[in-house]
Protein backbone atom coordinates (compact mmCIF):
# COMPACT_ATOMS: atom_id res chain seq x y z
CA UNK A 1 0.00 0.00 0.00
CA UNK A 2 1.41 3.35 -1.00
CA UNK A 3 1.58 6.41 1.22
CA UNK A 4 -1.08 8.38 -0.72
CA UNK A 5 -3.50 5.48 -0.54
CA UNK A 6 -3.00 5.23 3.21
CA UNK A 7 -3.95 8.89 3.53
CA UNK A 8 -6.92 8.45 1.20
CA UNK A 9 -8.22 5.65 3.42
CA UNK A 10 -7.55 7.76 6.51
CA UNK A 11 -9.63 10.41 4.76
CA UNK A 12 -12.47 7.93 4.41
CA UNK A 13 -12.37 7.21 8.16
CA UNK A 14 -12.22 10.93 8.99
CA UNK A 15 -15.17 11.50 6.68
CA UNK A 16 -17.14 8.95 8.65
CA UNK A 17 -16.22 10.53 11.97
CA UNK A 18 -17.20 13.93 10.62
CA UNK A 19 -20.52 12.70 9.27
CA UNK A 20 -21.41 11.06 12.56
CA UNK A 21 -20.46 14.22 14.37
CA UNK A 22 -22.55 16.32 12.03
CA UNK A 23 -25.58 14.14 12.71
CA UNK A 24 -25.03 13.33 16.35
CA UNK A 25 -23.81 16.60 17.84
CA UNK A 26 -26.21 19.34 18.77
CA UNK A 27 -24.14 22.44 19.43
CA UNK A 28 -23.94 24.39 16.18
CA UNK A 29 -20.24 25.19 16.55
CA UNK A 30 -19.57 21.50 16.99
CA UNK A 31 -21.52 20.80 13.84
CA UNK A 32 -19.33 23.34 12.10
CA UNK A 33 -16.24 21.54 13.40
CA UNK A 34 -17.63 18.29 12.03
CA UNK A 35 -18.29 19.92 8.69
CA UNK A 36 -14.70 21.14 8.58
CA UNK A 37 -13.56 17.64 9.35
CA UNK A 38 -15.56 16.30 6.41
CA UNK A 39 -13.94 18.94 4.22
CA UNK A 40 -10.42 17.97 5.29
CA UNK A 41 -11.27 14.31 4.74
CA UNK A 42 -12.49 15.06 1.23
CA UNK A 43 -9.25 16.89 0.44
CA UNK A 44 -7.22 13.95 1.70
CA UNK A 45 -9.19 11.51 -0.46
CA UNK A 46 -8.89 13.75 -3.52
CA UNK A 47 -5.14 14.18 -3.34
CA UNK A 48 -4.42 10.72 -1.99
CA UNK A 49 -6.33 8.89 -4.71
CA UNK A 50 -4.91 11.05 -7.49
CA UNK A 51 -1.34 10.55 -6.34
CA UNK A 52 -1.62 6.82 -5.75
CA UNK A 53 -0.44 5.95 -9.25
CA UNK A 54 1.02 9.13 -10.65
CA UNK A 55 3.10 10.53 -7.85
CA UNK A 56 2.84 14.22 -6.97
CA UNK A 57 0.05 15.71 -9.08
CA UNK A 58 -0.31 19.51 -9.10
CA UNK A 59 -3.84 19.48 -10.53
CA UNK A 60 -5.68 18.05 -7.50
CA UNK A 61 -3.27 19.97 -5.28
CA UNK A 62 -4.37 23.24 -6.85
CA UNK A 63 -8.00 22.20 -6.50
CA UNK A 64 -7.52 21.43 -2.82
CA UNK A 65 -5.70 24.71 -2.29
CA UNK A 66 -8.71 26.66 -3.52
CA UNK A 67 -10.93 24.27 -1.59
CA UNK A 68 -9.19 25.10 1.68
CA UNK A 69 -9.67 28.81 1.16
CA UNK A 70 -13.33 28.32 0.26
CA UNK A 71 -13.83 26.15 3.31
CA UNK A 72 -12.42 28.79 5.67
CA UNK A 73 -14.70 31.36 4.06
CA UNK A 74 -17.64 29.01 4.52
CA UNK A 75 -16.65 28.40 8.14
CA UNK A 76 -16.38 32.12 8.80
CA UNK A 77 -19.78 32.73 7.25
CA UNK A 78 -21.15 29.87 9.32
CA UNK A 79 -19.78 31.45 12.49
CA UNK A 80 -21.35 34.78 11.54
CA UNK A 81 -24.72 33.10 11.02
CA UNK A 82 -24.46 31.10 14.25
CA UNK A 83 -23.66 34.26 16.18
CA UNK A 84 -26.57 36.02 14.61
CA UNK A 85 -28.81 33.10 15.52
CA UNK A 86 -27.48 33.15 19.06
CA UNK A 87 -28.04 36.88 19.27
CA UNK A 88 -31.62 36.59 18.09
CA UNK A 89 -32.70 33.48 19.98
CA UNK A 90 -30.17 33.00 22.77
CA UNK A 91 -29.68 29.41 21.67
CA UNK A 92 -26.70 27.59 20.24
CA UNK A 93 -28.68 24.59 19.04
CA UNK A 94 -31.19 24.21 16.29
CA UNK A 95 -34.79 24.55 17.36
CA UNK A 96 -35.78 21.02 16.46
CA UNK A 97 -32.90 19.60 18.43
CA UNK A 98 -33.32 21.16 21.84
CA UNK A 99 -32.64 18.26 24.19
CA UNK A 100 -35.45 16.79 26.21
CA UNK A 101 -35.07 16.74 29.96
CA UNK A 102 -33.46 13.51 31.07
CA UNK A 103 -31.74 12.79 27.80
CA UNK A 104 -28.17 13.70 28.43
CA UNK A 105 -25.59 11.99 26.34
CA UNK A 106 -22.60 14.19 25.51
CA UNK A 107 -23.16 17.25 27.62
CA UNK A 108 -23.07 20.41 25.64
CA UNK A 109 -20.94 22.82 27.50
CA UNK A 110 -19.54 26.00 26.12
Amino acid sequence: MSTPLLYALTGAVLWGIGLMGLIGLRHLLRKLLALNLIGSATFLILVGLAQHHNGPDPVPQALVLTGIVVSIAATALGVVLIRRYFHLTGRTELESEVPEAGRDEEGHSG
Binding site: A8, A12, V13, W15, G16, L19, M20, G24, L49
Partner: peptide, 20 residues
Protein backbone atom coordinates in the same frame (compact mmCIF):
# COMPACT_ATOMS: atom_id res chain seq x y z
CA UNK B 1 -28.84 7.72 11.63
CA UNK B 2 -25.44 6.94 13.11
CA UNK B 3 -25.64 3.40 11.74
CA UNK B 4 -26.49 4.81 8.34
CA UNK B 5 -23.50 7.13 8.58
CA UNK B 6 -21.32 4.15 9.47
CA UNK B 7 -22.56 2.24 6.43
CA UNK B 8 -21.95 5.21 4.15
CA UNK B 9 -18.43 5.47 5.52
CA UNK B 10 -17.80 1.79 4.84
CA UNK B 11 -19.10 2.32 1.31
CA UNK B 12 -16.78 5.29 0.84
CA UNK B 13 -13.80 3.34 2.15
CA UNK B 14 -14.59 0.49 -0.23
CA UNK B 15 -14.96 2.90 -3.16
CA UNK B 16 -11.61 4.47 -2.38
CA UNK B 17 -10.03 1.04 -2.27
CA UNK B 18 -11.62 0.01 -5.56
CA UNK B 19 -10.71 3.25 -7.27
CA UNK B 20 -7.13 2.85 -6.20
Amino acid sequence: MLLLALMLTALLGRSVWQLS
